[in-house]
Each structure stands twice: as C-alpha cells, then as structure tokens.
C-alpha cells in the first residue's frame, strides 16, 4: 500500500479542446505511459450531454475503463447557482443538483465526488442519504486561497467527528501549499504589460508572506509609475494561502482524494530526469502525508496550459509531457 498516483483528465483539457486526444487516448496515456490506474474527471468536461448522458456514452466509458483496467476515483462536480436564471438557487436546489451528480458518479463507477470549496456544508448534509445509498463519498475541495488549517476544514472535521460518517471528507488541492506565483502566469503578465521588476517584487512579497495590500504597496514603492498590469500582479499574492505542509498529517483520516495541482515541471538542477514545480511544496507535503499514513490517490491536475494560449499554436504547452514529469516526481517522492 501507500500513496497512489492518478490523473485528473482536467490535465488534458487543451488536448481535448483541439481534438488531439479523445477520452480513449487520455485513459491510454495514463495506463501505458504513467503506469497507473487512477482517473479523476471534471463532469462537464468529459461527460457528453451532462447531466443526462446517453447509455452509449456510459457503456463506452465502462468499456474503456475495463480495457485499461482503470479505477474511477473522483468526479468533480459543480454548483452553478444561476442555473435557473429567474432566481438564485436555494440550498435545496443545490442539494438536488448534487444528488443528481452523485447518482451520475455511481452510474460511471466513481468512488467519490468532489464538491467545490463554496458548497455550504448543509447542502452536502442534505445529499448524505444519497451518498450512503450509492456508496459515493463527498469530499469538499480545499482550494487556495483557503488555508489547510481554516474554517472550511475545521467544520468538516467537526462534523465527521460528531457523526462518524465516512461519506463526507476533504479533497485538498496542492495549490494550498503554493508559496510563489506560478511562472507561466507571470510570463503571461509580462507579455501583457507587466514589468520584470514588478514580477520580482511580487515574488519577494510572497516569500515574505505579505498580503495583497502589502504587495501592492511594495510595487508602488519599488517602481516609478507602475502600470495597471504591474499593480494587478498583487492579486497573485491574494491567491496564496501560505499553508504549512505539516498540517496535512493530522487530516489524513478525512481525506477523500487529493488534487495534484501544478503549473510547470522543470528539471532539478544537477539531477537530470528529475523534475519539480518551483511554486508548490510537494516534498514536505508528501512527507507529511506518508507520516499520516495516507493511502489514497493524488491525481495530477495540470493548470499551466491556460497561461500559454494567447499566442500561436507553436507556443502551446505540452500537457502530456508535463503530466509525465509530474508523475516522475510523484513516484520518486512517494518512494515507489
């Protein structure tokens, strides 16, 4: 046993957008290149005709998962509160959507659904009987800028401790352990009017654990006549939660699965063939997860592509290669 590796097909969103990889190619890549079995999906990315896919889609899904001997780990579901347009959805209506999503997840063989950070706990509680009936666990995503030791986490932990339910838990996103703005987004900002000086100031502000206002002040003080693009970099600081990796150890019993968020895998200096994401602390986090005895899945969630789509096709990121590098790192840190 030990920590398991998987991939959220979110990582291949660009390949899918340009119709260069279909569902089969994505699943095949995970099995044959990454040599693992964990699959996570974004419901509305992968499932044609959500929320009511055809039997043909569902049959094809199962055939693919069987062919490559894969495991449907987590399905990420959403809460569009303006769906009915003439009123804001009530908590009951949000629960109704979640209940439908849980049934759909079960139909596709998923063990878990990921609820968004912003889903109120009482909505999840309303869906709990369905989750139990269909044997699908609900995990609330803990996503930056929320911290790993904040209220979002403590209210889940308290509820689970009180009720002993197995069907509510956490899906931490590795982005909560990000300590620097990701490089692709900074490069995007520099192509759109930000100066390198402002970028360096913001990185420094992050390492000093400053907040957004303080970072903005540092830009104002450090640069003569900063542009709007320079000042908007301060928002990068707002998105960091400065969480302490050690804090995840005690949360292990509550974790449903983990989003392996990353932005850019670069070769570690002096270590050919070994890669890291320079903005996220994976090493300490995985060490803490091991210490806590975590045996669930970390599913790669590559997000660097979106900052490289403002130029020609030749500048697009290579999602397949990025995920392969991510799995080199995961396997090495897990100690496979």
């Amino acid at each position: 046993m030990g920590i398991k590796r998987g991939v959220s097909l979110y990582s291949y969103q660009q390949e899918q957008f340009f119709k260069r990889m279909d569902l089969r190619a994505q699943i095949k890549e995970v099995r044959e290149s990454l040599n693992t079995d964990g699959i996570e999906i974004i419901d509305q990315q992968t499932i044609r005709d959500y929320p009511n896919p055809s039997d043909e889609f569902v049959d094809n899904w199962h055939a693919l998962m069987d062919e490559f001997n894969m495991k449907a780990v987590t399905m990420d579901v959403y809460m569009d509160v303006l769906q009915f347009r003439d009123h804001v959805m009530t908590h009951d209506e949000c629960a109704e959507r979640l209940i439908g999503d849980i049934k759909l997840a079960a139909r596709l063989g998923f063990e878990n659904v990921r609820c968004l950070s912003a889903v109120p706990l009482d909505v999840m509680i309303k869906a709990l009987p369905t989750a139990e009936k269909y044997n699908v666990r609900m995990g609330k995503e803990i996503h930056a800028p929320n911290p790993i030791d904040g209220k979002l986490v403590s209210e889940i932990v308290e509820y689970v401790d009180k009720t002993n339910t197995k069907f509510i838990g956490l899906v931490p996103d590795m982005g909560v352990f990000q300590f620097l703005p990701n490089n692709p987004s900074l490069e995007w900002s520099m192509r759109h009017g930000a100066s390198r000086e402002a970028v360096e100031i913001v990185k420094k502000a992050c390492l000093m654990k400053k907040n957004e206002d303080e970072a903005r002040q540092m830009i104002l003080e450090g640069i003569q006549n900063p542009t709007d693009a320079d000042l908007s970099l301060a928002f990068q600081v707002h998105m960091l939660s400065y969480s302490n990796p050690a804090d995840i150890e005690k949360l292990v019993p509550y974790i449903v699965s983990i989003h392996g968020k990353f932005y850019e895998m670069t070769e570690i200096e002096g270590k050919p063939g070994q890669y890291e994401d320079k903005s996220i602390n994976y090493a300490d986090t995985i060490a803490a997860l091991k210490k806590g005895g975590f045996e669930g899945y970390i599913n790669s969630e590559y997000e660097g592509q979106r900052y490289q789509q403002d130029r020609g096709m030749e500048y697009l990121a290579d999602e397949v290669e990025e995920v392969r590098r991510h799995h080199e790192m995961l396997a090495r840190l897990i100690g496979e």
Binding site: Y78, M79, D80, V81, L82, R85, V88, S117, A118, V119
Partner: peptide, 14 residues
Amino acid sequence: LNAYGYRPTDEEWV
C-alpha cells in the same frame, strides 16, 4: 454566468 458557488452579484444578475 457559471459559478463556483454563491456570489454577491447573484441577485443583481437575476
């Protein structure tokens, strides 16, 4: 008008 949950603009956007 998709969303990640409730927002202050919801009622206005209705």
